[in-house]
Each structure stands twice: as C-alpha cells, then as structure tokens.
Design a protein around this nucleic acid. Structure first.
Length: 283
DNA sequence: CACCATGTTCCTTG
DNA sequence: CCAAGGAACATGGT
C-alpha cells in the first residue's frame, strides 16, 4: 500500500503507538530487506532502543529512536516497496508467511511483512538524501517545478515518477494528478505550458491531500486481516459517500470518465500502466 | 501457461 | 557525461 498518502497515514497511525516503546529483541527472517545493514548490526543498534517518533519523507518511514547504551539518536528507515506492511500485533499471534523483520516490544511485536520483499527496513539513510521536495510542504514550489520539467523530454507521466523531481508520487497518483490537471500523460515534460505546470502543481497537492483525508477514515488494522486493498480502492464502513470512487482513472480502463463519460484508456509507458481520459486529457 | 501488480536500482544503449 | 529504456528483484492473483 505504498505511495505518499498511504505512508503518511501509516506514519500517523504508528506514531502514538510506538512512541515510548522499547525494543526488546530483533528477529530478522529475510536479511535482504536490511541491506546494506547486516542482521548483527541491526540487532546491536536496536536492542534496548526506544522509539521517540515516526515521520515520513516521500514514501519512506523514519523511525526515530534513542539507543539504550549511549542514549544516542538513531534513525531506522522503512520503505514498503510494492507489497510491504508494517503493523503492531499481539505477541502470541502467528507470524505472517512473509514476515521479514520482527521487533519484539514489551507487550507486542512490531512486524514488517512483505510478500515480494521489495521494501526495506534499514539503518542506511542514503536513499532519503536523493529525494526531491515534499509535495505538501512549502519546499515544493511551482516555479522550480516548472524549471525542472523543462529539462526533460520524457512523457510527463513518466517524469512524475522520478523521486528527485518531487517525492512520493507513484503509479496511481501520477495518473490521478494528470487527470485532475487535464493534461495528457504522453505530453513531453518540457512542452507543458505555464498554465499546465501551474495546474499540475495544484493537482498533485490536491490529489495527495485528498487521498490522505480518505485514508485517515480507514482502520489500519493489518494485524487482524487484509485492509490494504481498502486503502486504495475502497473506504471505511460509515465513511462519507464521496470516498466511494476515489480513484477517477486508475484501474478504470473501459469505464466511463466521471467528467465526460468517454471510456478511460489504458496505455503502457516505461513498462507501466497509465490510465487517462482521451477526451479530458487531449494535451 | 500468460500476463498483471502500489517501487527502486542497476545496467545498457544511444 | 547524460538521458532514457529495460531488466531485475520475488511472489501471488486472475
């Protein structure tokens, strides 16, 4: 469940639940997800450490901790890849099949499970340094965004997935933002007009903020069952109706565009699906 | 069996 | 050197 909004909602969910908790033991079942940190190193640093905060940067989770020994600050970096989930579970509950890392706490376990193991839980923070501006913060501004776009001839949809341009947009919200801005996903980044850049800048922020709102209505009770599908494609029981069809084009090939009823089209760009309305997004 | 999947990195090509 | 494209990673669903 991993683009910026999903990670943001998860960070808000975990923050109050992890703060003040101490790690008793570290169990690594799939060392690959720690890379380049070793299981020994992770256990050495985290054993006895206490969570002080959980924040987000792009699609990354940052777990701030204070170590037992020297009281030094450390940051543990998490990324969900395509299929990762991080959640708290009761101690006796059986581990999921693809549990990659278990952090044992006093009363429960913090579990990182990931079917495809594309995600990360590591002490290596280098990936964060490469990220572009946070789209929902003041560091993301339309003018520099437009200047960056001018440097690339890639289709705008593909360019939006570049995490150095702006952090946190993934395959779903790239299509959604372009639909909202009325821009064709095939348009070369450097050929967007100034009004288009301005509309896209606003659309990115609106789409991401709206998704965070929606996600905040959904119980993230991963330990009890599968709630991740809900996150993208549904809504919590009792949530307002306008959350029903949150995604306007993604995964809706052949269905009528909500604005003009023309069928939504699926194309492939950089080996990934793009969805758009050929009538509302002509250029 | 074939194809598809919310992501990132690495290698190759031009 | 750089931009762009594609494969690889690994597992499961349809």
């Amino acid at each position: 469940m991993p683009e910026l909004p999903e990670v943001e909602v998860l960070a808000r969910h975990l923050r109050p639940r992890l703060r003040g908790k101490t790690i008793r033991a570290v169990r690594v079942r799939r060392a690959k997800v720690l890379s380049p940190t070793s299981p020994r190193e992770l256990a050495r640093v985290l054993a006895g450490a206490k969570f002080t905060d959980v924040t987000r940067r792009g699609k990354y989770l940052l777990f701030a901790l204070r170590t037992r020994a020297a009281g030094k600050k450390v940051v543990l970096l998490g990324h969900l890849g395509m299929t990762g989930r991080m959640f708290l579970a009761r101690k006796p509950a059986p581990l999921p099949k693809h549990a990659a890392v278990v952090l044992e706490l006093a009363r429960g376990n913090f579990i990182y499970e990931d079917t495809r193991y594309f995600g990360r839980l590591t002490l290596d923070l280098s990936a964060v340094a490469r990220l572009g501006p946070e789209p929902l913060s003041g560091e993301f501004q339309a003018a520099p965004f437009g200047r960056e776009l001018k440097k690339s001839r890639q289709p705008i949809k593909v360019k939006l997935l570049d995490q150095t341009l702006v952090a946190g947009i993934g395959n779903i919200y790239a299509s959604e933002a372009l639909f909202r801005a009325g821009i064709s996903p095939r348009r070369a980044a450097n050929r967007l007009t100034r009004p288009q850049v301005a509309r896209l800048w606003r659309a990115i922020r609106a789409v991401l903020a709206g998704a965070i709102d929606c996600g905040s209505t959904i119980p993230l009770d991963f330990g009890a069952g599968r709630a991740d599908g809900l996150f993208y494609f549904g809504r919590a029981a009792g949530a307002p109706d306008y959350y029903l069809e949150r995604l306007r084009v993604y995964d809706r090939a052949g269905k009528p565009c909500g604005r003009c009823h023309f069928p939504v089209k699926r194309i492939v760009q950089a080996a990934r699906s793009t969805f758009f309305c050929p009538r509302c997004q002509k250029r």
